[in-house]
Structure formats: structure tokens, C-alpha cells
Design a protein around this nucleic acid. Structure first.
Lengths: 252, 252
DNA sequence: GGGTATTTGTCCGTATGTATT
DNA sequence: AAATACATACGGACAAATACC
């Protein structure tokens, strides 16, 4: 037997799904049915389904059955846009049908010591004090992303005291910093990796805890007009329903 | 039993890995050992290991054992750099220790009819003729990314005949198009999604065929000085060893 | 609300195959 | 060739979630 049985079953089912013989959202035959169809044991059938599950083709629902996953049009985040109103729920979002509402929780504000990487990004000494502002963000009531922004404590000491208040800063933190301290956002750098979800993320985004859906993690460091970093924003998105877009130079 | 046994075992092992009680690269106890340690059946132990595997913490090697995965420093691709010498192996790469060599195969050139999405990106009619130039790219001899560029056939008709030759175009296609047709790259748009690897990709990148490692797919559309798209480049990277960086505005 | 049937989830035991040392 | 370790495949039993009457 060159190819294991469970792979043969998985390949056969995959063909039926990709040829639309089994439609999106439709239910697959039950494990019991598949045992009969392929003359295999239940565990072998389940191995086949698990393969399709980790590849994101199907999902199982206890008590109901196994279903072909529905394709969802992804949320699009444009990296080349500055964060206008980044805490006020006005976050820019491109969607084919733009009738969507976005919202975010009030920030949870913490005073922390900078980890090695955070200190490095903000050009601070390690263990420097930073302000952390954490928010959960939703689209149409569904969890969309988790965001934490870090600011050097010097900004508060210089007068930007609203940074340590657990309230939205409207119309945006950058506008506020410009008004209070004259800091302008001259540029930013996004650094993007894909990694497995941790427990908190799996809970918030309601991911199956088998670790199949990975996370897109975006570290954005913002620089002022003197080239000094003044903010680090870490955003995490579920990779299966989000898309990133970046424009450079002149695009139509 | 609130938490299933295999999850308890997985959590316990995860703790030992994250606390470095079991070092990176080290071997886990064998399935037989774990059966004894946790007084569980072999299948239950294997369920626990599978959970850690899909989360990317460990990998199994038949005949050898189960090992904690080594952390590899990711390859960094800077999206905000134009593709200087994009076919000549000079692709820009940021690495801590920059003593690395990159190389790519000679392009495989095909004449194709544009799919719906490709036609849309290049502002062509569907089923228009496009040139496809496909390359495999390596770093230090290891597979790094797959790249396919699409060009409208009108570029060849207007004189850029080297596009349909299966040879590198040095110092770069953009330079060539500028010289022959006066086309300059005024800007570009990157669109990034994460998806499961297909069979060809799993083979090229030597991924385990359990579909655990997903792919980063980057669609880059380049625009000329008149705002017209003249090239679409689709790149695919394994998500577990690649990082994207983008700079906007003025960054230090 | 309760009970029952259906369906997937967990767990066990066993046997054999394949890869590596 | 032999020993070790993971991979595949079978069988059975009970639990948990869901749907339906």
C-alpha cells in the first residue's frame, strides 16, 4: 500500500469538495457513512477528516457532523494608511460592501517595564517604564483583532497625561501628541510574522483549540519628525480571515 | 474529568518546553516512556504529541523520536524596496549575520490566458494573453520562495521581446522595460494573505504533508508613471521562517 | 423540560508496517 | 540482522454535544 488508506480517503473527499460535488457549507457523510463507503474503520476515517481539518477544508461540529468550510471574504487592513483615529473605532477598512461597523473596547492601560524587544523598538533602555494601552477590536460585533500600543513614559512626563487614562483619545493619539508635544508621525515601520495562536487569542477569536488557525502579528513602530520612535503598536489578526495591503509610491 | 487526558499531557509537556526544562532541539521521552510517566495509553500519548505538533512546538521523526523544534531566525523581506535585480539573485535580504547566498532558477516562461483575478490586477480583459515567468528561489541552497511574474502581452508586441525568453534579464526586468519601452515603476501595491500550502509547495519547501505550515502569499502589482499596471508578481513563502517588513514615510 | 437518537470526542487495547540506528 | 521508535489500521466502549420529538 503505497498511499495510506486515510490519505486516499482524504484525497477523494478533497476532490469532491474542490469539484463542488460537496458544496461549501454542506455536510459531509457521517463517520459511520464513510466507514461503509470506504470500507475502513472509524479511526481511519477520522484520520482522513483530521487531515482535511488541519488543511482548513472542513470543520467538525460535535453532535452535528462534518461540514465544508464556508469561504469568507477577508477583512482588509491597509498598512500604508496612517492610524487616523486609531482608538476611536474609525479604523480604516476596505471591504467590497462597506456596510460594516467596527468598534473597540476602551483601552486597558498598564504601566510596565519594557521587554527587550519593546525597548529595542522604542530605543529605550531595557526595563524602562512604558505605558501599555490594550484594546479588543470588533467588526460587526465579531472579534477582529487585538491591539496593544506602547509609549515611552517620557511622553507622560512631558505632558501627555491622557495616555495614562483608561479612556479613548479622540480624534486619535497622534493628533493628541501633536497638539500637546508637537510630535508628528513622520513615518512608520511594519514588521509582520505568522505564528501560532496562544490560549488567550484562541479564546477571544473563538478558534478551535487544535491550533490550526495561525495569527498574523504586526509590529508597527512610529517615528516622529526627528526620527525618534514614539509608539509601538502590536496587532494580532486571525490569519484565516484577514488580508494586508500596502501601497508604495504612486498607485492607481 | 474536566480536561481531557491528552490535553493535560500536552499542557504539561508544553510547560516543560517553554520553561526550557526540555531544551530546543532536545528529544522528548519516547511514546513508550510517556505512557509510563502519565499512565496513559499509547494513542492518548500520541494525541498529546499531535497537538504539540500542530502548534509547531515539536516534530516527530520516524525511527528517531520526537524533538522540540529549533527556532530559526526568519528571513526578512522588505516590501518597501523596489525589486532591484529581481531575477538576478540580488534580492534584498536583511539578516542579522548577512553572510548568506541567494539564488534562483532560470525562469520557466509560459504564455497563458489571464485568470479573472490576474486580468483584474493588470487591467486586462479576462482571457487576455499574458506572459508568465516562474522561478524557484533559494537561500543558502535551501528553498526560500516561489515566484511567478505576469506581464501583459502588449509589452512584447511593443518590443520587450526578452520577456518571452527563458533567461534571466539583468540587471532587472524594470531596467529593461525602462530602456526598451520607457516604462518606469512609479509605485506598487502588495496584497498579503495566509493560506494552506498546496501539494507542489509542500514538496518544494519540504513541508510535512500534514498541512501544518501555512504559506504567506504576496501579490505585488507594479504601476508605471501613467498609473497603468504592467506587472503582477505572486510570491509564496513558508510562514514559519519568513518575516515581512514595510517602511512608510521617514523612518530611522 | 425530558427523553431519545444521532454524531463527534475521548480513551483504551492490539497488531503490523516503516524508518532509523 | 536486530533493536528502537514512530506510523498506520483495526476493534471496542463510553462520554459529550446537538437535534428532534
Amino acid at each position: 500500500m503505497n498511499e495510506p488508506i486515510y490519505r486516499q480517503i482524504a484525497d477523494d473527499l478533497r476532490g469532491k469538495i474542490e469539484s463542488d460535488e460537496i458544496a461549501h457549507g454542506a455536510q459531509l457523510p457521517t463517520e459511520s457513512d464513510l466507514m461503509g463507503q470506504y470500507d475502513a474503520s472509524r479511526n481511519t476515517v477520522r484520520d482522513a477528516i483530521r487531515l482535511l481539518t488541519t488543511r482548513g477544508l472542513v470543520e467538525t461540529r460535535p453532535g452535528q457532523g462534518t461540514f465544508v468550510v464556508e469561504q469568507v471574504s477577508p477583512y482588509v487592513t491597509t498598512l500604508s494608511d496612517p492610524d487616523i483615529g486609531e482608538e476611536s473605532g474609525l479604523y480604516r477598512l476596505d471591504l467590497a460592501a462597506s456596510q460594516h461597523t467596527s468598534a473597540s473596547t476602551h483601552p486597558r492601560v498598564e504601566i510596565q517595564r519594557a521587554s527587550s524587544r519593546i525597548a529595542n523598538e522604542l530605543h529605550l533602555e531595557q526595563d524602562s517604564t512604558v505605558i501599555s494601552r490594550h484594546q479588543k477590536r470588533y467588526i460587526d460585533g465579531a472579534p477582529w483583532s487585538l491591539q496593544t500600543s506602547f509609549y515611552p513614559m517620557r511622553l507622560v512626563e512631558q505632558g501627555a497625561t491622557r495616555l495614562i487614562q483608561a479612556a479613548d483619545i479622540k480624534p486619535g493619539v497622534v493628533s493628541y501628541l501633536t497638539g500637546v508635544l508637537g510630535i508628528e508621525q513622520a513615518g512608520w515601520r511594519d514588521s509582520i510574522i505568522v505564528r501560532a495562536a496562544n490560549e488567550a487569542e484562541a479564546g477571544f477569536f473563538r478558534l478551535s483549540d487544535d491550533g490550526r488557525v495561525s495569527m498574523i502579528e504586526d509590529w508597527r513602530t512610529a517615528f516622529d519628525q526627528h526620527g525618534a520612535p514614539f509608539r509601538l503598536t502590536v496587532r494580532v489578526y486571525p490569519a484565516d480571515r484577514n488580508q494586508l495591503v500596502a501601497n508604495f509610491g504612486s498607485v492607481s
